[in-house]
């Protein structure tokens, strides 16, 4: 008994090399593989483009508009993080229009959002001569939960004495992380990481509209009542510190967070056989945070609750009264 043997694929198919596309950036010629973004082409030339909502492990949502560049022939500026190159494209990354729009984006954000824990924010504000205060003194914080109740399509007329902000109290509703949405630039990264790009838990989404748009659980319930599985993959991608592990938040609150004296060591998570690389941030002999490298092929920077928070037991061994001491098995 034999049947005609269909062709079977035995090994991994080699990908056909991509055609090269030549373009011009700031007067320099560069050839990059088809499908490369303008941002990628700029990186190949060593041209730095500021980004906020872009991350190499996430689908570009191109919402922050900080990475805009000028493409000859285009009516408006284009987001370099998502726009792919085309043959003969002429790109300007430092024109007056580009500088102006980036400056506006930075000023609009800095005047409405707390950027104090956004790495690189101060440098950018200086580089682009920003003066966020020119929109007026920042409006005081709203009471907790108020922003979540605002009606789409309606708003209270502005108070001419203040520039509106999204200032609000931080949400501390669980033991593992803090959501300080007064620092949220609405980059969508956490939503993408929690949702379609990685975790697919969809515990959070952008809710509301316009200036009142915000990150929310369903019905704005506290995190413990939501679908959250505490993987912390949202924390891993947050560019502003709006989402932060409680361990880091508490240390910062005590003024004890000291990145300069932390050691960073890659090891393997002990919790299952997948082999996630775990980057341990150790300060004064204690683990203060666990992350995973974005370029790790297994994790792409992601972990689960056990990997991201399961290290605490190590520090609970030494003294009396830890879980080891009471014979917990």
């Amino acid at each position: 008994m034999t049947t005609a043997a269909p062709i079977v694929q035995l090994s991994r198919r080699a990908r056909a090399p991509k055609a090269m596309v030549e373009l011009n950036v700031d007067g320099q010629s560069v050839s990059v593989p088809d499908g490369t973004t303008i941002l990628g082409a700029c990186a190949a030339l060593g041209i730095e483009i500021p980004t906020l909502c872009y991350l190499e492990t996430l689908r570009p949502v191109n919402v922050c508009r900080l990475c805009v560049v000028e493409v000859e022939g285009a009516r408006v500026l284009v987001p370099s993080c998502s726009r792919t190159v085309e043959a003969g494209m002429k790109v300007k990354t430092r024109s007056d229009r580009v500088r102006h729009t980036r400056k506006m984006v930075l000023e609009l954000l800095a005047s409405s959002v707390d950027l104090t824990t956004t790495p690189g924010a101060n440098e950018l504000l200086t580089e682009y001569d920003c003066d966020p205060a020119r929109f007026g003194p920042p409006a005081p914080a709203s009471a907790a939960g108020v922003r979540e109740t605002r009606l789409p399509g309606h708003h209270t007329p502005p108070n001419p004495d203040f520039a509106a902000t999204i200032a609000q109290p931080a949400t501390l509703d669980n033991d593992l992380y803090v959501r300080d949405y007064g620092k949220c630039v609405l980059c969508y990264k956490c939503v993408e990481a929690c949702g379609p790009d990685h975790q697919n838990t969809f515990a959070i989404a952008v809710a509301g509209r316009g200036f009142d748009a915000h990150i929310s659980t369903e019905l704005a319930v506290p995190l413990p009542d939501s679908a959250c599985v505490y993987c912390g993959n949202c924390i891993a991608v947050c560019p502003t510190g709006a989402l932060m592990a409680k361990s880091e938040f508490d240390l910062r609150a005590r003024g004890a967070w000291n990145e300069a004296c932390q050691t960073i060591t890659d090891t393997i998570c002990p919790y299952c056989g997948v082999g996630c690389t775990l980057t341990l941030h150790v300060q004064d002999g204690d683990i203060v945070k666990a992350t995973s490298p974005l370029d790790n092929a297994i994790t792409l920077g992601n972990l689960c609750i056990k990997g991201r928070f399961g290290w605490r037991y190590v520090q609970q061994r030494a003294g009396e009264g830890g879980p080891g001491a009471d014979g917990r098995g």
């Binding site: 922050c64 900080l66 409405s112 007026g136 001419p160 200036f211 009142d212």
Partner: peptide, 25 residues
């Protein structure tokens, strides 16, 4: 425009607010 901005991109989300504020001032 402030009411109808979807809120996705920064220039429009915050820009429409700043525009309205300036006009109110």
């Amino acid at each position: 425009f402030r009411d109808e901005s979807c809120g996705q991109c920064v220039p429009c989300r915050v820009g429409t607010v700043r525009q309205e504020e300036a006009l109110h001032r």
